[in-house]
Design a binder for these strands. Structure first.
Length: 508
RNA sequence: GGGGGCGUAGCUCAGCUGGUAGAGCAAGGGACUUUUAAUCCCUAGGUCGUGGGUUCGAGUCCCACCGCCCUCACCA
């Protein structure tokens, strides 16, 4: 990093120096390098659609605005491509048509924001173009964007070279977005998906709510929290790791269908599928159960995939993911038993560890697994990699699910499912435990695990128990990782590709 | 945190077994009134991630550190 923002001139590149010199020259012409406003008549795409070849050299008058994405000076004329959020349009500058403004055109750089008005025509080479009659500088770019050369082809814009370093792309997302229209498209798609989910739930009578992000007790998931401090109350507060316990309090209060879309914060490792803050959709529906949630899931996830990808069958990594309902269900205990030959609820723990070691887990590690953790490791080793097609993994052991209702037919299990797509967990849902005394016992069990060193065991939440004592209707609830959903929808390999500003170590 | 890889001009990259840096694009000057990866001529631009070490000599070899990527672990 030789040139830092606002650094001394000695630290700036010659490119930046030259742009600042042009900025000064523009000011000397009495022109503002950073304008206040521009009334554009059409976006690039709208303007292009306006032209008809019968109009010849004198098409309609348009005023377009955008960033200069290509600039070709040619003596007393020049061509530029303006890029706005709709696309690109070419602009043709002529000295004899611009008069005094020609001086300004000479001082334009790639990446400047400009507004151009003029008539549309088609060039010899066939491109619909604005013949500039007036040019307004809207914002001088003092730092060149890391863009490559581009070629406008019939099937889109082809780039040669350009910003490729993933570090710069994530740290300077503004630059990444500015030079990569396809990245802008990812985040449009993200917004479309979230809007679709809201519309879907609103149409089903769900109420969108907001619950605390700063919580005196964190719960609803197993994870280490971020801790902060409230000065006025002089007490620690935790950034939520889940919305669950607050949303279920609302069921007690008579809000029968609620959902929340917001960030959860988990103080854990970061990798391709984990960012410390991520977007979660949680929803709860009174008088439903996990069966109801599976149906809802098929409609909702299948629907959003279809809305974003145009089909419920999408091609990912050479396989077709088929979101057409119904989706297969695999029972947690039976699924493992079919592959490992043991019942994880009743098998001797030493035998389970031996199976894990035979499966490739290191002996030292396996020795540390016990209880619910051991069962989960068995799942990861024997079952998870097979869950590529949308699949419900159902009926988890009780030890793994302290907030889920016991299975109606088998007291060792809970009515819980997770949806897996591409081998990754996308949704977690259950029939919500609404017996306050059993919930109390589950919390006490978690407290014991905590005392035994499990940092992620859930905290005893007395206020939540009090709420349940008032009576919570039976309900189904569901949580879905929005970022991971977007990874499925876009086919992008890293959660950082679908989060605008992913967490990064600080620079310098 | 373990293992592997990478870090050279604004951007994309070369740089063989050590002999103190190259290209294309971008930039500056010039030519060019329908070009589109415009073209042609000329010019400038780099403490090779940081700090040590080995060596007569380090972009290159060694060590440490910083950052990123991949992978494993953690994340039910």
């Amino acid at each position: 990093m030789t040139s830092l923002p606002g650094g001394a001139s000695a630290e700036r590149s010659h490119v930046e120096e030259s742009r600042r010199a042009k900025r000064d020259a523009i000011e000397a012409l009495g022109i503002l390098p950073f304008a206040y406003r521009f009334e554009r008549s059409h976006t690039a795409l709208e303007a292009l659609a306006l032209y008809d070849d019968r109009m010849g050299e004198d098409g309609p008058l348009v005023a377009v605005a955008g960033r200069i994405a290509a600039l070709r000076s040619q003596g007393k004329t020049g061509f530029a491509h303006l890029e706005d959020s709709s696309g690109r349009i070419q602009v043709y500058f002529r000295r004899d048509a611009l008069g005094a403004l020609w001086e300004l055109v000479q001082l334009l750089d790639l990446d400047d924001h400009v507004g151009v008005s003029g008539r549309l025509f088609r060039t010899r080479t066939g491109e619909v173009t604005v013949r500039a009659e007036a040019v307004t500088l809207l914002a001088k770019s003092l730092r060149p964007l890391p863009r490559g050369k581009t070629q406008v082809a019939e099937d889109g814009v082809q780039t040669f070279g350009g910003l490729a370093d993933p570090e710069v792309r994530y740290r300077q997302r503004y630059a990444d977005l500015a030079v990569h229209p396809e990245v802008r498209e990812v985040f449009r798609l993200r917004a479309r998906a979230i809007a679709w989910l809201r519309a879907f739930l609103d149409a089903r009578g769900y109420l969108e709510v907001e619950t605390p992000i700063l919580q005196p007790l964190y719960g609803g998931a197993a994870a280490r929290p971020f801790v902060t401090h409230h000065n006025a109350l002089d007490m620690p507060l935790y950034l939520r790791i889940a919305d669950e316990l607050y949303l279920k309090r609302l069921l007690v209060g008579g809000l029968e269908r609620v959902y929340e879309i917001g960030h959860d914060f988990r103080n854990e490792g970061m990798d391709r599928t984990h960012n410390p803050e991520f977007t979660m959709l949680e929803l709860y529906e009174a008088y439903s159960d996990y069966e109801g949630m599976m149906q809802l899931c098929e409609e909702m996830v299948g629907g959003v995939v279809e809305a974003c990808c145009g089909s419920r069958r999408i091609e990912r990594d050479g396989t077709t993911l088929d979101f057409t309902a119904p989706w297969p269900r695999v029972r947690f205990v039976e699924g493992i038993r079919e592959r490992a030959g043991v019942d994880v609820r009743t098998a001797d723990e030493a035998d389970l560890r031996r199976l894990l070691v035979r499966r490739g887990v290191s002996a030292d590690e396996a020795a540390t697994f016990a209880g619910g953790k051991l069962q989960d490791e068995m799942f990861k080793a024997f079952l998870e990699p097979e869950l590529v097609q949308p699949t419900f993994l159902v009926d988890y052991p009780v030890a793994l699910s302290p907030l889920a209702k016991r299975h109606r037919d088998d007291a060792t299990l809970t009515e819980r499912f997770e949806l897996f797509v591409g081998g990754k967990e996308l949704v977690n849902a259950f029939s919500e435990l609404n017996d306050p005394d059993e919930q109390r016992r589950r919390f006490e069990d978690q407290a014991q695990q905590r005392a035994a060193g499990n940092e992620e065991a859930q905290l005893y939440d007395a206020d939540y128990i009090r709420a349940l004592e008032y009576g919570m209707p039976p309900a189904g609830g569901l949580g879905m990782g929005i970022d991971r959903l977007l990874m499925v929808i876009t086919g992008l390999p890293s959660i950082r590709d679908v989060i605008l500003f992913p967490a990064m170590r600080p620079e310098s």
